[in-house]
Amino acid sequence: MMRVIQSSPRMHYQDLGRFGHTHVGISQGGPLDLHAHCWANFLLKNDPSATTIEISVGNALFMAEEDSVIALTGAEMSARIDGRVIENWCTHFIKKGEVLKLGYAKCGTHGYLAVKGGFIAPEMLGSSATVVRNYLGEYLTEDDVLRSKKSDLGDSFIARKTPEKYVPNYDDVRKIRLILAPDLDAEVGEKLLETNFSISPHSDRMGVHLIAENPLPKLPGITSEGIPLGSIQLTPSGHPIVLLNDRQTQGGYAKIGNVARVDLPLLTQAKAMTKIGFEAVSHEQAVDEWREFSRFFGL
């Protein structure tokens, strides 16, 4: 059990997402950085569906109210336990009465806090994923008590770490891979791949708003249809939006591509005003990599 002493601007429970309700207009939710969420649970030998806390922007304090084993992944937030510096992408033992302090995110935007056994969070429609715009769950605030599933901590704690090669450097992302829309106009495709974009500060859990250096050509709207995670919609302004976990369930803007699932965290973790560009990946390659990811974590 832990207690929130100070909450970050946006901090909430997430599991893998709320599935099977898109047809009534409910967004799936789920972690913006699935890679980091899965690693946090993997390090603790939790099921990947165990509930973690997504901490955006950082600057939060937690007090351990019992001995616990936790994991931290995602954005680098200069974590400390009772003042002593602790490593990101690693498990830690926190003793009753100790305080976990997270600073502002330095590299990346969203950090993940997991606990051995997983947090016990209210489930709605079979999922603890918080989707504030759907009135499903709320931000965590000061004094909230974070309970965790009973779990044997064992006699001796041995820290587990994510191998270096799986730890992304969120600050060093230039190209994000996308699958070009199957029916895309060749000229728009070319422009999309050669344009530099910056991340708009208006981005949120519904979508990353991109500001194109030179607006892309206008495309007519379509009859509203389903929107995949990572879909790139081109708005009439010529600036695209990459749709994320809390996206609307249908939309009528032209879709020009889809960010590869395994590359999405690089986009969602990018800070406002970061410059990015896209490069194309084949549909087959993207499927292979997503399948490999899913298999590794047992999704």
Binding site: F19, T22, H23, E225, Q250, V287, R291, S294
Partner: peptide, 22 residues
């Protein structure tokens, strides 16, 4: 199959790539 969504003129289907291919 994870999601089946009826739209005005289309049907959107999300599926588990470990269980079925397109």
């Amino acid at each position: 199959v994870i999601e089946i969504v009826a739209c005005f003129a289309s049907l959107f289907v999300e599926f588990d790539v470990l269980k079925i291919n397109s």
